[in-house]
């Protein structure tokens, strides 16, 4: 685990510079969510605009939009693939992302386009930590 104050970045997943994560969980399935830095920046999420199962997603392109306190934040897909499941609990209760953006707070399950999922263009947690530190300095 990498930690910056209250912001934790578990070592068991890969991070996109747009503060989404990908965690392989089995045969051709990857969970996707937002990291604790994004969660802290936005505070309480009021709603999430999500793609539906069956939709294709592309690394770096908009995957979802978080809505909070009158503002919105688009976040990118961490990998190429197809959405196979939406976390309905988080969709109905996005405020629960505050408690746990990593386990119960996964947002989508994606079938990756290729076997090399989650290596290309993504950070391990130690590099993601440096990226978060830079952003915090900027703030």
């Amino acid at each position: 685990v990498s930690r910056i104050g209250p912001i934790v970045l578990p070592a068991d997943r890969y991070y996109h510079p747009g503060h989404t994560w990908a965690k392989p969980v089995g045969a051709g399935e990857v969970l996707v969510g937002l990291d604790a830095f994004a969660r802290r920046i936005v505070g309480d999420v009021r709603a999430i605009d999500l793609p539906s199962p069956g939709e294709r997603v592309e690394q770096g392109r908009r995957l979802w939009t978080l809505r909070f306190d009158g503002r919105a934040l688009d976040q990118p897909a961490p990998l190429d693939g197809e959405v196979i499941e939406v976390n309905e609990e988080i969709l109905r209760h996005p405020e629960r992302l505050r408690e746990d953006p990593y386990e119960r707070g996964w947002i989508l399950k994606v079938r990756p386009r290729d076997e090399q999922c989650c290596v290309a263009n993504l950070f391990a947690s130690d590099l993601a930590k440096k990226w978060v530190e830079l952003a915090i300095q900027d703030l």
Binding site: G5, P6, G18, H19, V42, G43, F68, P76
Partner: peptide
């Protein structure tokens, strides 16, 4: 880092921060 800091930034500050640290193609 302040909880929910985005809402305390000006619109211009937020846009600049968002584009740099939350890049979307």
């Amino acid at each position: 880092l302040m909880e929910g800091i985005a809402k305390y930034l000006s619109e211009a500050q937020w846009e600049q921060f968002r584009k740099r640290y939350f890049p979307v193609a």
